[in-house]
Simulated scan of single mutants.
Amino acid sequence: MNGFPSKALLWLLLSVPGILMIWSFSQGEALAMDMLHPSGEMSVRLMILAMLPGPLSEFFGLNRFFRGWIAIRRNLGVAAFGYAMLHLVFYIFDMNSLAAMVEEFGIPGIWTGWLSLVLMLLPAVISFNYAMRKLGRNWKRVQRLVYPALIIGLAHWILLDWAWQPAIVHLAPLIIAWILRYTGRRRRRHMQRSMT
């Protein structure tokens, strides 16, 4: 995914749901509150898509499919942050008052959303090649902030909806991928021990 046309096409595809959300809201077809769930859900989905190729490729092997997926995972992560920001914009329009936003900040379902957004901010800001070269190993440490961001983001979802099932369904592929990576590592360690 190095060529400009292919990267432009990727970003076009990633932006289509957001464009449709903004269009529906701007045309009066949907209220800001109606756009909160789809924008937040899209952010979560893209975060999970960005996290999946690492553990899956470690378990199944780094083939052409996983190389392609890994090549775009930074794009997926940045797009996830973009949808989180769109979620915030819809929230601001829905509340329509800074005082009202401050007043409900202490609600667990609200401050968890803010915390998740803050944790996503730094990895998104440094998600380009120059920052990767400049930061070296520290770049990966910063990028790992997406893990607590995802978990807290899912808590935000559950606390607002009072329904844990949709959030768990979204998280399930990542849990399976982590289990596969763990079992793969255990198997390799066992094989190494048996060979010594």
Rank of each mutant, 00 (worst) to 15 (best):
F60Q: 10
G61Y: 07
G61F: 01
N63Q: 08
F66R: 08
R67C: 13
W69Q: 07
I72G: 09
R73W: 00
R74C: 06
L76C: 05
L76H: 08
L76I: 05
G77A: 08
G77V: 04
V78F: 10
V78W: 07
A79S: 01
A79P: 00
A80I: 11
A80D: 05
A80V: 08
G82W: 03
A84V: 02
M85K: 13
L88T: 03
L88M: 06
L88K: 07
Y91H: 03
D94E: 12
M95K: 15
M95D: 12
N96D: 10
S97P: 03
A99N: 00
A99D: 01
A99H: 13
M101F: 02
M101H: 03
E104H: 15
E104F: 03
F105S: 09
F105I: 13
G106E: 09
G106N: 06
I107Y: 12
G109H: 01
I110H: 13
I110E: 05
I110N: 01
W111S: 04
W111Y: 05
W111G: 12
T112S: 07
T112G: 04
W114I: 12
L115I: 10
S116I: 05
V118Y: 04
L119A: 00
L119R: 04
I126Q: 01
S127H: 04
S127T: 04
N129K: 13
N129Y: 11
Y130D: 15
R133A: 08
G136W: 05
R137T: 07
R137M: 14
R137L: 15
N138F: 10
W139M: 09
K140R: 14
L145M: 03
L145W: 04
V146H: 02
V146L: 09
V146E: 04
P148S: 11
A149C: 08
I151T: 11
I151M: 00
I151D: 00
G153Y: 07
G153C: 07
L154T: 06
L154M: 03
A155S: 11
W157L: 02
W157E: 08
W157Q: 12
W157Y: 04
L159K: 08
L159S: 11
L159W: 14
L160E: 05
W162H: 12
A163M: 14
Q165T: 07
P166K: 02
P166V: 04
A167K: 12
